[in-house]
Design a protein around this nucleic acid. Structure first.
Lengths: 340, 340
DNA sequence: CAATTTTTGATTTACGTACCTCAGAAATTC
DNA sequence: GAATTTCTGAGGTACGTAAATCAAAAATTG
């Protein structure tokens, strides 16, 4: 049997109340007595029964998720995962609220952040553009004791306690490695399509991609990146225009959203066999993989990201540091052959 | 506030004891009364507080893991993950024991399975060769009420309740898709190196690989598979011999273990630039990727597999069916660019 | 040494569920 | 309608921890 607080009390020769005071860092215990209790804990290998503790204190964690609204499939998938987490709320003792804002609207995010009552919210996870006003608003929240985590795209200079998402520099490098190897040494140009350079994830992917191409595949030349604000129609137009303007383009790296537009543009250029790598497994990209239109899709599991965000925010609310190694989100590569 | 059993009792107009009998499927309640309680549960949206329930019944789940001993890095990684799960035992209410057996020793596995006392073990997870005697021993155990899950490699015809591992047919197809694309349409031969065709995972990988090559990359011809019993020295010798015998080999797919031997063989053929895909991220394969000796490594996250096995065995012990969609283990692809 | 403050002990209630007993009510059978 | 069986109610204890109260003991101060 694992030891309980009673065993600790007996072992340390103190009362239950004192053990409780020490374990919960309550005041009014002499340093000498604290040491006695801690020694007993050590000797018996006591670990607090978290389920019993939670039952006793019936703590709940009010959390807020902020993410862009609109048709972006990835963001809608992310929202679905948050809703799935809401379903688990009773078991996880969370109380989750979702706030959506127009995409690329920093002001709207700032407004929501400023409207949150620190007394009623313990943690916030948000998907945001990396702009100074958002960073400042995050800082204000953190000052007021609310824990903030960034989701999908980081705010590097901010006070956020954790970034829940993939290493986008590595993702870009991976795309470079794949396209480089898929091209098998043949010279050509690679069109890079991005959403917005105000998004730190897009920035990082572009950098990582360029880095690997320069270092390992000098025969490939980058065209772009063109910015599309993640709008499918804009992607379609930009890609079509670029392909028609430059017959030397043999590959495309789409590092943002608007994948539907990319597929439409490729359908209009069916005669040209292009090597294509895009991001995020969605209904569209899945079909494009199956059809052989895409060669690979790089994915981040938004379910993992949401669950990680919740774990981290809960842990910090309890005064614990998240174990960063455990919270790393992996970069998934999907070919048509390993699609789930 | 979420409803409790007391609320259900009040709502249904019955006593606490009756609610308890209904919720825990105890006998002695008229069908009419059962319906009343169930209606109340439905109306109030009651969900049992699992932590409180676990606390009350202080159930523990005695589990046994069986896996091969020996220097195989992947298996040692697997064992490490099991030990990590043992560390979490108090919180997860498990009691885990590890049994190791000589690799490819079906008899030893059968002996252990037959020695287990169904009164003292609720679940078993095992890594096993797909032979009739093992399948039969699993059947005997299941008949005695012990739940059995296969780990890493499946026993397709057995009574196991669940297979915790990747879809190895898809893994083989993925390897085929990668090598095919990496070779970029250039004709050549691919050497396939396997451990043992008695392992269903190796069988499946070989099949999936051959399938994709035949369908999508007819310019690539398969040599092998050669069997090495996952022994590094055997791999080194087999690969060296094959490469020296056939100058047409331009790629290698190593679908088993003994990766160290493969690396040694490649080091001996440094002048020849081969496309190489292997399985499992280990110290050795990680280095080979970094050195550019391997182009890609296909991986299964054995931490996920162990955690999944525990979840599944616990769920079945509680009479629940595992949600198979949630328990699917993904196929990871690693290049040097996305190594964690 | 008395007065004060700090530390400790003893005890209780609560969290939500599981599981037990025993008495009494209701339904069924003869 | 009596005897039996089947249901139901009321109440309790337990799980391990949290959190509170109040009294008593110990240490510190003047």
């Amino acid at each position: 049997m694992r030891p309980t607080v009673h065993d600790i009390a007996a072992e340390a020769g103190v009362s239950l109340a004192t053990v409780d005071r020490v374990l919960n860092a309550r005041p009014g215990v002499r340093q000498k007595t604290v040491a006695k209790v801690e020694a007993a804990v050590e000797r018996l290998g006591y670990v607090r029964d978290v389920t019993a503790a939670n039952l006793a204190k019936k703590r709940i964690y009010p959390l807020v998720f902020i993410l862009p609204e609109g048709p972006n499939s990835f963001m809608r998938g992310l929202e679905a995962e948050i809703r799935a987490a809401m379903q688990r709320s009773p078991a996880e003792r969370t109380s989750i609220r979702i706030e959506t804002v127009p995409p690329f609207d920093a002001k709207a995010i700032v407004n929501i952040l400023d409207s949150l009552d620190p007394a009623e919210v313990t943690g916030v996870a948000l998907v945001a553009t990396d702009t100074p006003d958002v960073t400042a608003a995050v800082g204000r929240l953190v000052e007021n004791g609310v824990h903030v985590a960034t989701l999908v795209s980081d705010l590097p200079g901010s006070q956020r306690i954790h970034y829940c998402g993939i290493d986008n520099l590595a993702a870009g490098r991976t795309a470079g490695g794949l396209i480089g190897r898929f091209r098998g040494g043949r010279a050509g140009k690679v069109l890079v399509v991005a959403g917005s350079m105000k998004l730190s994830d897009h920035m990082d992917r572009a950098s990582g991609f360029a880095e690997v191409l320069a270092a390992e595949f000098p025969e490939l030349e980058i065209v772009g990146p063109v910015e599309t604000n993640d709008d499918a129609d804009a992607v379609r137009q930009a890609v079509t225009a670029a392909l028609e303007a430059d017959a030397g383009i043999t590959a495309i790296y789409s590092l943002g959203a608007g994948t539907r537009g990319l597929i439409e543009a490729l359908a209009g250029q069916a005669s040209r066999k292009l090597t294509v790598v895009a991001h995020e497994v969605t209904e569209h990209s899945r079909q494009a993989l199956a059809d052989g239109l895409f060669d690979a899709v790089i994915n981040q599991d938004c379910g993992h990201e949401v669950r990680s965000a919740i774990r981290v925010l809960k842990a910090r609310s309890d005064g614990l540091m998240p174990i960063s190694a455990q919270e790393r989100i992996r970069i998934d590569i999907f070919l048509r052959d390993n699609l789930p």
